[in-house]
């Protein structure tokens, strides 16, 4: 899964499909195929804004082409996983598996995203726990200081 999510589109391919998309855009007749090809290349870019753009193009396709929905949902999940938007990626995996519960490609992706989400939430707990400890430490320190002052005052 790691390999699938870190593999990068060759620059010349990205440019080729970008050109095709813009040519059709100029004539105001972008085909589903062209938009999908360009979006698929964009979500495999190493540059996050490209991936975001790919996601927008896929979301647009979702509203226009019911036949390709399966492909679009899958690449929306991939795109979001690549920019570490794991909750969104999870949402698309779940939507896909509702239609096709036995799809191995999506099951593996969902498992990967689930692991990432769990790690993130553990980290979240660790951070929150750390903050509580630090806060506790500060209060403790304050008490200690106050005590010290008292003893100092006494002396």
């Amino acid at each position: 899964m790691e390999e699938l999510l870190s593999e990068v589109v060759p620059q010349q391919d990205l440019e080729k499909f970008e050109k095709k998309y813009h040519q059709e855009l100029d004539q105001q007749s972008v085909s589903h195929r062209t938009q999908f090809e360009y979006a698929w290349c964009l979500v495999r870019s190493s540059y996050a804004p490209d991936i975001q753009k790919g996601i927008l193009l896929l979301e647009d396709l979702m509203t226009r082409d019911a036949d390709g929905k399966r492909d679009y949902i899958y690449y929306l999940a991939i795109g979001n996983a690549r920019i570490k938007q794991y909750s969104l990626a999870m949402k698309f995996c779940k939507a896909f598996l509702q239609i096709e519960p036995n799809n191995q490609q999506v099951i593996s992706l969902e498992q990967y995203v689930k692991d990432k989400l769990e790690k993130e939430s553990l980290k979240g707990i660790a951070v929150a726990g750390g903050a509580a400890l630090a806060l506790g430490g500060l209060i403790g320190l304050g008490i200690a200081l106050a005590k010290n002052r008292k003893t100092a005052n006494k002396d």
């Binding site: 390999e3 699938l4 399966r70 899958y74 096709e100 036995n102 191995q104 490609q105």
Partner: peptide, 22 residues
């Protein structure tokens, strides 16, 4: 799948784009 997992997937859905195995 037969090569990477030594299993036969009888009801394999159509691949979307590309799949990866190692």
């Amino acid at each position: 799948h037969q090569f990477t997992e030594k299993k036969f997937m009888a009801n394999c859905p159509h691949t979307i784009g590309v799949e990866f195995g190692t």
